[in-house]
């Protein structure tokens, strides 16, 4: 049963990766390429590329893509295959978080839990900062390319704009995409 295998494979991926979607890449790679032989390393690179350039959480994108691919390979319904793989990758964290969220209210009564969460606060801020820093590094200094002055200028301009004008998160994302297109019309690649 390919559907069950898909579901189980991605449930394992969902259960054993902690710390964000990108942490999943090695595990998915190992399962799909080495264990099951469903995809070639070249195809997997394409999966990662497309998951990065489509909206939505990376883990969901790549699970859906793999589900479609594997089901097609076996002559089965790609839609059902993608539902199995995506459902599999989501289910463990859904169940675990629901259990934790249910117990959270009671756990917060204990001083040690409150103290631990208080201590994690500055760490979380540091993590958010490092996410911005790492993404910025990838964007401004892509491997093997010179410094992207256009992207740096665009980032500074957008940041300044949000400082002076009240602009919502969703609008900012859409504005970024629109300005990317406009700049491309003038021959500027970000």
């Amino acid at each position: 049963m390919i559907y069950l295998t898909l579901f189980w494979t991605f449930a394992k991926v969902g259960l054993f990766t902690i710390g964000g979607g990108y942490a999943m890449i090695p595990l998915i790679q190992q399962q799909l390429i080495e264990r099951h032989g469903w995809v070639t390393p070249e195809q997997f690179t394409d999966f990662v590329g497309i998951a990065e350039s489509t909206p939505g959480p990376f883990a969901i994108n790549i699970a859906t893509f793999a589900g479609i691919h594997v089901a097609e390979q076996h002559g089965l319904s790609p839609l059902l295959g993608s539902v199995c793989s995506t459902g599999g990758v989501v289910l463990p964290s859904l169940v675990i978080i629901l259990l934790i969220a249910g117990a959270f209210h009671y756990a917060m009564r204990h001083w040690a839990v409150r103290a631990a969460l208080e201590g994690a606060k500055p760490v979380v801020v540091g993590l958010i900062g490092s996410a911005a820093f790492t993404l910025l590094g990838h964007t401004l200094l892509p491997a093997g390319e010179p410094f992207h002055w256009a992207a740096a200028g665009f980032a500074v301009a957008l940041f300044a704009l949000t400082h002076w004008v009240r602009i919502g998160a969703v609008s900012l994302i859409l504005l970024g995409g629109a300005l990317g297109l406009v700049l491309r019309c003038f021959g500027v690649s970000l």
Binding site: L136, L172, G176, G180, L181
Partner: peptide, 22 residues
């Protein structure tokens, strides 16, 4: 190239958002 251009703009906007959240 048009998809790539829009995505590049969105990526920079996402970085600005995350920096602001930071």
């Amino acid at each position: 190239t048009w998809v790539a251009a829009a995505l590049a703009g969105i990526r920079v906007a996402a970085i600005v958002l995350i920096a602001r959240a930071f």
